[in-house]
Design a protein around this nucleic acid. Sequence first.
DNA 1: TACGGGGTGAAAATGATTACCATGTGCTAC
DNA 2: GTAGCACATGGTAATCATTTTCACCCCGTA
Lengths: 167, 167
Amino acid sequence: MTRDLRPHPDTRPAASAPWRPTRQRTAVLNALHGRTGFTSAQELHEALEADGVTIGLTTVYRTLHALDRSGRVDVVRDRTGERLYRHRPTDGHRHYIVCRACGLSAAVEAEAVERWADEVAETMGFAEVEHTVELSGVCDPCRTEHRRTAAEPPPPRSGRGDRRADS
Amino acid sequence: MTRDLRPHPDTRPAASAPWRPTRQRTAVLNALHGRTGFTSAQELHEALEADGVTIGLTTVYRTLHALDRSGRVDVVRDRTGERLYRHRPTDGHRHYIVCRACGLSAAVEAEAVERWADEVAETMGFAEVEHTVELSGVCDPCRTEHRRTAAEPPPPRSGRGDRRADS
DNA sequence: TACGGGGTGAAAATGATTACCATGTGCTAC
DNA sequence: GTAGCACATGGTAATCATTTTCACCCCGTA
C-alpha cells in the first residue's frame, strides 16, 4: 500500500553517530562539489565509477541521505519523482529554478515564499511545517535553440547538471 | 538511467480524443468526489474494488492522468514521491497544506506564491515556467493527540484523505 | 590480538508507475 | 441491425529509483 515512512533502521543510527570521512564519503562530496547543477544519485554513482572510484550505489544513496539530513545538500524532485541533489553553496534554505531542457539550475530569492509558508502554517494551525517549492521552465538559450531546430527537442546540452547560472 | 519523460504513447492520443464518460471513468470521478482529501491511485483502486466496481489499476492511472491533464484534479507528491490526487473544488490553480499524520488537507491562499513564481520566471529569463508548492505539517488535532499518547505515533485517523478543513 | 562499532556493497526486495497488447464497447454509416 | 472504426479497458510483464538485508571490512581501543 503506502510505503513505510518511518526513518528506516538502515540509516537511522547515523542520527547520533559521528561522521567518519571515509574514502567513499569524501568522493561523493567531491563529486557533488565538482558538479554545479543537480545530479541524481545514479548519475553521481556512474560519474564516480567513471572516475575510477569504486563505490556501491547503496553507499551513494546513504551518503546523499546523510548529507540531506545534515543540510549539506539541497534536494529537488524532477517530474518523474526522481531525487536530484546539489551541494548547498551557502548556508540556509535555498530554492532553485531548473531548466527542463538542459538542466541548468539557478538559485532564486525565495524570502517571499518562506514568509508565506510560515504565515500559512500559523493561520492554519499546523506545526512542524515543511515546504517544497519547485520551479522549472525553459531557459533562454534552450528557447532560442529550440526555435532554430524546429522539430526535434533541444538536445540536452551536457547532462542534467553540468551548467549553471548561479551567483 | 533516467526515466523517459516523453508523454508515453499509451495515453498521448487522448490529447485530442473525445472524453467518453464510461462506467469506469465515472466511477473514478465519483470516488474522487466522495473522498475529500488526497488519495493515491492505488487507494482509489482499492476503494473502488471494495465498492464492487470492477476496474483495472491501469485504467485508474490512465483516468487520473487524463483528469490531471485536463486540470480537473490537483496532484501533490508525498514525501516518498507517490502521487496523490484530489478533485479540484473550484477552477484555477490551488495549493494545499497536508497533515503528515492524518492526511487532512486544506486549501491555502497562494496568490503570493503565484506572483512570486511569475516574477522569478521573468527576471531569470525562463519561459514556460511551472511551479510546485507543497506544504505539509501536523495539524492541531494530531498535535494534541500526539501529546497525550506519548510513545506511539498518532493513529492515522481514517485513511489518508478522509478528513478535510476546506472552504 | 580480540573486540566492537561504524561502514560498505552485492544482491534481492519493494512498490509505484508504464508499456504491451489482445479484447471490449459504443458510435456511425450503410 | 450490423460492419467498421476509434477509443477504452485490463491483465500481465516490464521499468526503475530507492530500500533492505546481511555478510564482510576497517580501524581504533582495551
